[in-house]
Design a protein around this nucleic acid. Structure first.
Lengths: 198, 198
DNA sequence: TAAAGATACGGAACGTTGTTCCGCTTGGCA
DNA sequence: TGCCAAGCGGAACAACGTTCCGTATCTTTA
């Protein structure tokens, strides 16, 4: 939260100029390759696209997960920050929850393979997993709690499980026209509704 | 396509005895390894466990998918055949659907990594994917239609999407105690309900 | 039963990945 | 200008799925 912050002060800092340039180039190249070939694109492809060697990419981003986090950090932050606003401006907490989840789904399905990688049990992606959890689960929990307090939904659903379920539903949403992830998420969210407090 | 199977007249040429024995051994070894290390276990491990070479495994099962299909064929068939029975013995079609999906979930979550491999976009698993679709989607469609006809659920949900959604929800159900796939599937199925039965 | 031919086997070898390592290059500073 | 650590490129390594082919074994036939 500090190393890339250059808003205040203008010192060149510890990093060498070429290193900073490379990091930037790498991020752009990775973003481009992710769009073109999905998040699981070979690291070599990214290095090639950026015109750097393998060593460089691993120096800046010790694991693929770090690179993915760096590329999508802004969008994840925006998603996390959108929660409270939705809660304030939506007619009901349940509506806010629905919209927020829509945003999450939009984010996932437009990043080829990201949902799959997110739930990967591969140890290398632990930090990616943890980042998403840390950043988004609390927001979801807040929305969920508000909706539960309003009596709109069951109160026995935890945010982690829901996020995970939604993420899972988004897996493979691209390259299978017959599968509509949004629709399934819609059903899942519908299933949250309180049957009806007599 | 001519010398491999002479259907008319003579019985198809029988395989060599050692080949048949190996195939059996291989199936047992694969089943054991799948239980121990998951469906994505290295092919070499299976070959080693069976005490055969790599060539042998690939001759009998040209792709990993074929091996997986062979190992789980019986269970998938049983699942497919259970559909009509449930429909006949359950109080309502929706209950039958729920139970059948429970069986499907049980099957998936007890096979480490199977759900993940099922939705894999890896071309090598196309035949596995197709097998599950061919065998299970029609059964699910029948249950779904019965429930829709009874006015219990929305009529605009297709079996393929639902199966796919349920399968997705089961991904990573093992090795994450915080995630309860059954619960999520339950919510999804609850979401199917018609909001107003007329 | 023995030879011939078909069949199947083992495992080395290949291609593709992620990741590490190390000798060389180069930016930043005195 | 010259030093030297930060940084770089890409070869090298390990793990995987898959293919290939020389060899061993089974089956058939004389």
């Amino acid at each position: 939260m500090n190393d890339s912050d250059e808003g205040a002060g203008r010192t060149a800092r510890s990093k060498r100029a070429d290193a900073r340039r490379n990091e930037e180039t790498l991020l752009e190249a990775a973003a481009a390759v992710f769009v073109a070939s999905g998040v699981e694109a070979p690291v070599r492809d990214i290095a090639a696209k950026a015109g750097v060697g393998m060593g460089t990419i691993y120096r800046h981003f010790p694991t693929r997960a770090d690179l993915i986090i760096a590329v999508y950090r802004h969008q994840v932050e925006a998603l996390a920050e959108a929660g409270p606003g939705l809660l304030a401006t939506s007619p009901t907490p349940h509506a806010a929850l629905g919209r927020w989840i829509d945003l999450f789904v939009d984010f996932l399905v437009t990043k080829h393979g990201l949902a799959a990688v997110l739930r990967s049990d591969d140890a290398g992606f632990d930090t990616l997993h943890a980042y998403f959890i840390d950043r988004l689960v609390p927001v979801c929990a807040q929305l969920l709690e508000a909706a539960a307090d309003a009596g709109e939904i069951r109160s026995d659903v935890d945010a982690y499980g829901l996020m995970r379920g939604v993420g899972n539903l988004c897996i493979g949403a691209d390259h299978d026209p017959r599968y509509d992830a949004r629709r399934m998420v819609e059903l899942l969210v519908a299933g949250l509704r309180q049957s009806r407090p007599t």
